[in-house]
Structures are given as C-alpha cells and as structure tokens.
C-alpha cells in the first residue's frame, strides 16, 4: 500500500459518501444517472467475485463490501424508494449503456492476462469501469446547471482513478516485475474521459460560478 493508492481509495470512498449525502439530504436523485450506478454495481460485482476466496487484508475486504453494498443501495434507492425515484431524470438518462457492457465483455474475452473465468471477469470490470461514467457525463450536459453535491461526486470519482495512475507509476519504479498494463491503460482512458468535466469544474471553482457543462 502506498500513499497514492490509499488517497485514491479514500477519494473513491468520499465520492460515494457525497452521493449518499446528496440523495439522503435532498431526498432527490435529480442529475444522477441511474445507468452509471448500475454499471458501477456490475463493475464491483464482477471485480470482487474473489471476496470470499482470496483474502488480501481486512482493509481490502471491508472496502470491497462497502463499495458493493453502497452502490447496490444507491441503485435500489433510485429504483425502489418511493420519494427518491420520482426525481430520477428518466427522460434524460437515455445512454444505451448495454452497448458499454457488451463492448467491455467482448474486449475482456479478447484482451486479458489469463483466459480464466476470474481473470476475464476482472478485465471486464476494468474496461467497464473506464466507460461507466459516460451516461453520467451525458446526463450532466443535458441537465444544464449541476448541483454542488453532484459536481463534487463526479469530481472525486474522476480524481480517484487519477491517483491510482500515480500509484501504478510508483509501483512500477519500486516493485520488480510489477506490470498492470490492462488496468493502467484503462485507467488512463477513464481519467481522460473526465478531462472536459475537470476543466469546467475548475472554471466554476475559479470564477466561483455554478458548474455548467456546454450542451
């Protein structure tokens, strides 16, 4: 464990806490893409299938449980909660995310570290996570001005993978035979997708203005 990875995990945790706060405090999920939440639930379920077989550390197991449970809770809340689901922007959240699932699955079958069930599921979760934010970014562009908590949620979610890239660079230079090129290339793509969001987020912070993504 290094500071970059720990900071990345904490940033990821903060993004989930901010999202939970937004939904709990405002009893609304307006501006949040349910499709992105469903894709993230799939990412965690596919990536953490080894939670019961491979024990890495207490921290690792607890964080996996927190990520799976919180994301499933958010999806349930957006689908089933009487009050919250009424504020879901159903007509704006129209990204065809099934294509993202299919493309990630095909790519995982073609490009993986080993042709085993677990490795292919892991590669699938890595590729899917890289594109999982797309429905959310499209929804932000369509829904005009973005409320602060939603903006902060997306910001922390994008920042965490950027910190992971620093972690991979650090491990590359400090650990012999460290190679994680699938996660690294995918992480670069994932972080690059946030580039324009980060730009407008920075502008809104600098000008102390409301965050607004151009349509």
């Amino acid at each position: 464990m290094n500071i970059f990875r720990f900071a990345g995990d904490m940033t990821h945790l903060i993004s989930i806490l901010v999202l939970l706060l937004k939904i709990y405090a405002t009893k609304s999920c307006s501006g949040i893409s349910r499709k992105t939440q469903e894709l993230y639930a799939l990412v965690f379920l596919a990536r953490y299938v080894d939670i019961f077989t491979e024990f890495i550390s207490v921290y690792n197991t607890i964080m996996k449980i927190v990520f799976i449970a919180s994301t499933l809770a958010i999806v349930w809340c957006m689908r089933g909660h009487r009050v919250v689901r009424r504020s879901y922007d159903k007509e704006l959240d129209t990204f065809r995310h099934y294509f993202l699932i299919a493309a990630s699955l095909v790519l995982a079958l073609l490009v993986h570290e080993k042709f085993t069930f677990q490795e292919i599921l892991w590669a699938f979760s890595i590729y899917l996570e890289a594109v999982a934010i797309l429905p959310q970014l499209v929804l932000l562009q369509r829904s005009g001005n973005v409320d602060n908590l939603t903006g902060q949620y997306v910001f922390f979610l994008g920042a965490y993978r950027g910190l992971y890239i620093l972690n991979w660079i650090y491990r590359y230079f400090t650990e012999p035979h460290f190679s994680r090129w699938i996660a690294c290339v995918s992480g670069l793509v994932q972080t690059a997708l946030y580039a324009d969001f980060f730009y407008y987020y920075f502008l809104s912070w600098k000008n102390n203005a409301k965050l607004k993504l151009p349509a």
């Binding site: 990875r5 491979e54 992971y164 994680r180």
Partner: peptide, 10 residues
C-alpha cells in the same frame, strides 16, 4: 502466489 500480488488493489 503472484496471483494475489497482481490483485491486491480495489
């Protein structure tokens, strides 16, 4: 057990 080392991240 390089398998564990390669999947020690979240």
């Amino acid at each position: 057990r390089s398998q564990d080392a390669s999947k020690d991240e979240l």
